[in-house]
């Protein structure tokens, strides 16, 4: 087998996939400014993506904050810097762990659900049925999910940030003998608007990625149950990888400021 031919084929397939995703994205985004806008569908999707993800994201954020507090205390203790635990916990949660952990959890929960739902609609001809009923399937299925995810994720992450800091506070005051009011004062004095806003901007981008990957993979699923299963897996894997890649790029951009 010619290795150059194989590499070339894979590269061309990747370029073709990138082109298809770009066209799909442009089509979906263009419908955000072209009426009709399906407001009720957007609200329903905001409930599904944001509100119903709250328990899993909240629990994850709580334990992440708690573990972060313990680890920073152990590391800081070696240099006599354990007093900086509140500052580093809030910085880590708001800038990185809040958005990334929430993004990955929502990718697992929501991207999979969107891909399975739209994939099933594809293989049972429900998407073709939408077309025959004079309804653009991208406008009806994809655009509302994109808008809902971009709005819901920052709200979800703002709540997750608070729960994460609270997780650190509980461990610090109950296990590490920190004074509660001092811990909270140090947290509040240290955090800046940029820390919070950069995390929320990241989460909006992650929301867009999650909804886009769920919709794209569902929309292009083929075959029966196996095709829907593959679309679901691809949605979660691609959303997770893109979230981590986008996180690095966004962090670099925010650092360059």
């Amino acid at each position: 087998m010619n290795i150059f031919a194989t590499v070339g084929r894979v590269f061309l397939a990747f370029l073709a996939l990138t082109g298809r995703v770009a066209v799909f994205t442009a089509d979906a985004v263009s419908h955000t400014v072209r009426p009709p806008i399906f407001w009720m569908t957007i609200l329903k999707q905001m409930l599904r993506i944001g509100y119903f993800s709250l328990p899993v994201v909240g629990l994850t954020a709580f334990f992440t904050g708690a573990v972060l507090c313990l680890q920073i205390y152990i590391g800081g203790n070696r240099y006599g810097a354990e007093a900086f635990v509140p500052q580093i916990v809030v910085l880590g949660i708001t800038r990185e762990l809040g958005p990334v952990i929430a993004g990955l959890m929502v990718a697992g929960r929501v991207a999979a659900a969107i891909a399975a739902e739209i994939g099933t609609m594809r293989v049972t001809e429900q998407i073709d049925a939408l077309t025959t009923l004079s309804t653009n399937p991208v406008k009806y299925l994809v655009t509302p999910r994109l808008i809902a995810a971009v709005i819901s994720m920052p709200i979800l992450v703002a709540v997750a940030d608070s729960i994460g800091v609270f997780g650190g506070y509980i461990v610090a005051t109950n296990t590490l003998n920190f004074n509660g009011s001092v811990y909270l004062r140090n947290t509040a004095n240290f955090i800046t608007q940029d820390d919070v806003v950069s995390g929320l901007v990241k989460s909006a981008v992650f929301g867009f990625i999650i909804a886009l990957m769920g919709c794209y993979n569902g929309f292009n699923s083929k075959g029966g149950a196996q095709g829907v299963g593959a679309a679901t897996t691809n949605a979660v894997v691609s959303a997770s990888i893109l979230i981590l890649g986008a996180n690095y790029i966004l962090t670099s951009v925010f650092f360059a400021k």
Partner: peptide
């Protein structure tokens, strides 16, 4: 459609009326 292709998320009447509500 062969399998009906009814929208699972909507009640029967809304399936029937879908083209009227969304399309017209």
């Amino acid at each position: 459609f062969q399998g009906g292709a009814l929208f699972d998320s909507l009640p029967v009447w809304e399936n029937v009326a879908f083209g009227l509500i969304q399309g017209r």
